[in-house]
Every structure is written in structure tokens, then in C-alpha cells.
């Protein structure tokens, strides 16, 4: 945990604050002000990313700090979900925006890093980016799953799908990205370490999270909307395994493995 007393840090904290304010304002039933704050947060996030770009003089997607910084510009993804997928939950998206910026603001170092040899590969960015985007979709799906369990439905005039259908649709969006992340990681492992599968804890957790969503897709194919609660629990379980994959293995150092440098 570190607080960044820099312009970069300030921009990140301002974005987080704007997203959180937007979240609270939306919950207090002021959707217009909430949306304005969300847009404001997005604008600061873009400045923050641009500032980083100017500062390091290359596309800032070299390390996890920069990837999370990029993910902080979540607004277009929410817009896409709402307009194209007809899945919406503005308040949740704002909170997710703040959550993904948290690691950039407080966990990862912002020093421009010199990458160790194994990380110098064209696969680094696509592998990490595919995973991060899939995680955002899965987070949104999990939120919808919770809405389903809590019986929260969109208002009739909003032209949005029910939470159960929303969960399914967003998982269908995120699953190919999850698959891509896993396969790119495996291909990279082959180039860097000589094996496409090393049975390393991080790999096994990521396989487990992929399998949980695979199970979800098959279960939903078998039963459709007959057991909406089980469908939702399945999605939530997937997210739980993703969180373990992402945080537990990296941060707890309980398992030491090949991926431990990724912290």
C-alpha cells in the first residue's frame, strides 16, 4: 500500500473520487448529476492516461500499473453494454471504475519499470489486456447476478434485459476474452519458459476460473432460465475464483511460483 504524492497520483485519486461521487449521487436518485460526474471522472481518467503516455514516452501498457490505469477509462465499456447489449447498471459501473483504479492508485508502483527478460514480449500486453477486459465484463455480470438474487429489476421504460439474461449476455461477452487470455498466456509460457503449461498455481487458478464459466455456459444451456438462482450463484462463484486468481496468488505470497514477479 502506498500513496502517490505526484501529479499522476493526484489524477488517479481525483478520478476515483469522481466515480465514487457519481456512484453515491446515482444511488440518491440523481441520475443526471451522477452521469455528469461519471463523465467528469472519465475525462480525468483520459488525462491521467495521456499524462502517463507523455511521461514515459511510449504507449503506457507496459506494466500492471499502466494496465489498470487504462482500465480506469471504463466509460466506453459501460456505454457499449447499455447501448449494444441492452444491459445497464450505471451505478455499478461507476463503482467498478473506482475499484479497478484502486490498484493503480494504491498498490502498484508507478516508477517506469525496466522489465525483466521474461516479460519483454509482444504477448505481455495482449495477454494482460484480454484478461483485464474479461475481468471487467465478469465483474459486471456478477453485479447482475447479485441483482437477480436480490430481485432488483430494471425499470419498465428503460428497455433493458432482466438481470438473469444480462448475466448470461455479459458472460458471453467476457468468455472469449477469458479464453484468449488463457491461451495467449499459455503460448507465452511456451516461448519464455519452454512449456505451454507449467502447472503453476496462477495457471491452475486461471484454468479453474475459466472452467467455472464453462460450467455456467453448459448448465445454462441444459436448463435455460429454469433455475435462475443457480445460474446466478454459478456466475458469482466464477468471479470469486477470478478474484483469488488475481489477488490471492499475487498478493498473499502463500504460493510461490513462476508468476510471483507479477506483483
Amino acid at each position: 500500500m502506498e500513496i502517490k504524492y505526484t501529479i499522476q497520483g493526484l489524477l488517479i485519486y481525483m478520478t476515483i473520487a469522481a466515480y465514487l461521487l457519481a456512484f453515491v449521487t446515482t444511488l440518491l436518485r440523481r441520475p443526471k448529476s451522477g452521469h455528469f460526474l461519471y463523465l467528469l471522472g472519465f475525462a480525468i481518467a483520459v488525462c491521467s492516461f495521456g499524462y502517463r503516455w507523455y511521461h514515459v514516452r511510449h504507449v503506457p501498457l507496459q506494466n500492471l500499473f499502466e494496465v489498470f490505469l487504462c482500465l480506469g477509462m471504463i466509460y466506453p465499456v459501460s456505454l457499449f453494454c447499455r447501448r449494444v447489449l441492452r444491459v445497464g447498471s450505471d451505478a455499478a459501473d461507476m463503482l467498478i471504475g473506482a475499484i479497478v483504479l484502486f490498484p493503480a492508485g494504491f498498490i502498484f508502483h508507478a516508477d517506469p519499470q525496466q522489465l525483466p527478460p521474461a516479460l519483454q514480449s509482444w504477448l505481455f500486453i495482449p495477454h494482460v489486456a484480454a484478461y483485464m477486459f474479461s475481468y471487467i465484463f465478469m465483474l459486471m455480470a456478477t453485479f447482475q447476478a447479485f441483482c437477480q438474487l436480490a430481485g432488483i429489476n430494471p425499470k419498465p421504460g428503460e428497455n433493458l434485459l432482466s438481470p438473469e439474461e444480462s448475466t448470461y449476455r455479459i458472460i458471453c461477452m467476457g468468455f472469449p476474452l477469458l479464453t484468449l487470455g488463457l491461451i495467449l498466456g499459455s503460448y507465452w509460457g511456451k516461448l519464455a519458459w519452454g512449456d505451454y503449461w507449467g502447472w503453476d498455481p496462477k495457471e491452475l487458478w486461471s484454468l479453474a476460473s475459466w472452467l467455472v464459466f464453462l460450467g455456467y455456459l453448459h448448465f445454462r444451456y441444459m436448463f435455460g432460465k429454469k433455475h435462475p438462482r443457480i445460474n446466478s450463484l454459478w456466475a458469482i462463484a466464477g468471479m470469486a475464483v477470478i478474484i483469488i486468481t488475481l489477488l490471492w496468488v499475487n498478493l498473499s505470497r502463500i504460493f510461490s511460483g513462476l508468476h510471483s514477479y507479477a506483483t
Binding site: W199, K202, L207, F255
Partner: peptide
């Protein structure tokens, strides 16, 4: 089988790469 493989993967993650292999 998908569920069994999920459980086995999680088990493998607990025992470390060498033993998991």
C-alpha cells in the same frame, strides 16, 4: 467432468507447481 477438473485445478494450485505436475 468440468466440475471435477475445476476441483482438481484448485487442489493443484494448493500443492505447488512441481507436485501438481
Amino acid at each position: 467432468l468440468i466440475i471435477v477438473l475445476t476441483v482438481l485445478s484448485i487442489y493443484g494450485a494448493f500443492i505447488g507447481a512441481e507436485r501438481a505436475e
